[in-house]
C-alpha cells in the first residue's frame, strides 16, 4: 500500500478486531484496553505523526525475496516449535497449574475483589504494575524530551495566531462532541472506580479520560485546549501518579509489612486491600491519562511548528 493513511486506518480496524478476539477468549479487561488503545489512541497518534512526516511511502522494497525467505524460514521454525504445545483450551496446560489455582480459589477471601484480574494486577503483582507505570511515565518523558518546544516570545505569538478550531465550521461535529465529552469523562470515572467488580481499572480509565481531552482539543483547536489544559500541571500529575503509587508501598513498609502489602493500611486486612487497590488504581489512572495527553499535545505542537516554518521558508 502506497498511502500510509489507508494503512493506518486498516491498523485501527485491526485493533478493534483483535479486541473482539479477546472478548471471544474471555479476556474482557484486555479487550477493553485494546479497544481504547489499539482502535483509538494508537490510530490517532499515527495520524498525528504522518501529518508531519508525509502521507506517501516509497514503493521500493529492500530485497523483498530475501526478506520473504527469512520470514518463511522463521515462521516455519516457529510452527515446528508449536507442535509440542498444549492444544487450544486444554484445562491441564502447564500455564494453568502453578500459581493460578490459588488466584482463582483464594483471591476472594484474601483480597475480597470479584474481578480476579484486578486483584492480581493491583495486589498480588502490584510491584510489577509499578514497574509498568514507571515505563509509561518514562516513555511520556521521552516524547516530551524529543518533541517539546521552547517558545520564545515571538514564536509564542505566532503559535497563538493559528486558529485550527473546527467548532465554528462543522455544526454536527460541534453538537455531537459537546454532548459526548461529559459522558466520556463520567464513563472514564465509572471504569476507574468500578474496576474491582467488573472489567476496568486505572489503565483503561486513564486512556478513556485522555481520549475525551484529545477529542476536546481536536474540536476546539490546540490554542483553546492549551488554555484549558495546563501543560505544566499535566506533567506534574503524571509524576504525581507514579509517586502516589510508590508512596502507598512505602506506607505499608513503614507499618512493618512488605512493600505494597495493603493489609497494613487498615485493621481489617480485606478492607486494607480494598483501600490499597483503590489508591494505586488512582495513581495508575493519573499517570496513564496525563502521559497520553502529554504525548498527543506534543505531537500536535510539533505539527504547528513544522507547518509555520515551512510557510516562512
Amino acid at each position: 500500500m502506497k498511502d500510509l493513511l489507508a494503512a493506518i486506518m486498516l491498523s485501527g480496524i485491526y485493533g478493534l478486531l483483535s479486541a473482539s478476539f479477546f472478548v471471544a477468549m474471555d479476556a474482557v479487561d484486555v479487550a477493553f484496553t485494546e479497544a481504547s488503545v489499539g482502535a483509538g489512541i494508537s490510530t490517532l497518534l499515527m495520524l498525528a505523526a504522518i501529518t508531519i512526516t508525509g502521507h506517501s511511502e516509497d514503493p521500493v522494497r529492500h530485497k523483498p525475496v530475501l526478506a520473504a525467505i527469512v520470514v518463511f524460514i522463521t515462521g516455519g521454525m516457529l510452527i515446528y516449535g508449536t507442535l509440542d504445545m498444549p492444544y487450544f483450551g486444554t484445562a491441564q496446560a502447564p500455564v494453568h497449574l502453578h500459581v493460578v489455582p490459588r488466584y482463582i480459589t483464594e483471591s476472594m477471601q484474601e483480597i475480597g475483589v470479584p474481578n480476579i484480574v484486578t486483584s492480581v494486577l493491583a495486589s498480588y503483582r502490584a510491584f510489577d504494575t509499578l514497574g509498568e507505570v514507571v515505563v509509561i511515565f518514562t516513555a511520556g518523558m521521552g516524547v516530551l524530551a524529543l518533541l517539546s518546544m521552547v517558545h520564545g516570545p515571538m514564536e509564542k505569538a505566532e503559535f497563538e495566531s493559528i486558529n485550527d478550531s473546527m467548532h465554528e465550521k462543522y455544526l454536527i461535529l460541534r453538537i455531537v462532541t459537546k454532548i459526548l465529552i461529559p459522558f466520556i469523562l463520567i464513563y472514564a470515572l465509572y471504569v476507574q472506580f468500578h474496576g474491582d467488580y467488573g472489567p476496568g481499572g486505572g489503565f483503561q480509565a486513564g486512556v478513556i479520560f485522555a481520549a475525551a481531552i484529545i477529542l476536546y482539543a481536536m474540536l476546539f483547536g490546540m490554542r483553546t485546549a492549551r488554555r484549558v489544559v495546563n501543560q505544566a500541571l499535566v506533567r506534574l500529575i503524571a509524576a504525581f501518579g507514579v509517586l502516589f503509587y510508590g508512596s502507598v508501598g512505602v506506607v505499608s513498609l513503614l507499618n512493618g509489612k512488605n512493600f505494597l502489602d495493603y493489609s497494613a493500611l487498615s485493621a481489617d486486612p480485606v478492607a486494607g486491600q480494598h483501600l490499597g487497590i483503590l489508591l494505586i488504581e488512582l495513581g495508575v489512572g493519573f499517570t496513564v491519562a496525563s502521559v497520553m495527553v502529554i504525548i498527543f499535545f506534543n505531537f500536535e505542537g510539533r505539527r504547528k511548528k513544522s507547518n509555520t516554518t515551512e510557510t516562512k521558508v
Binding site: 509509561i136 524529543l146 489503565f203 510539533r302
Partner: peptide, 30 residues
C-alpha cells in the same frame, strides 16, 4: 474460569506498548 494471569500481563503490556510506539513515532518525526 479462564486464566487471569496472562490477562494481567497483556493488559499492562498494551498500554506500555502504545507509550513506546509513541516514542518511536516521535523519533520518526525528529
Amino acid at each position: 474460569y479462564s486464566n487471569p494471569l496472562p490477562h494481567v500481563l497483556i493488559l499492562t503490556a498494551i498500554v506500555v506498548g502504545i507509550a513506546t510506539t509513541a516514542v518511536g513515532l516521535a523519533l520518526a518525526v525528529r
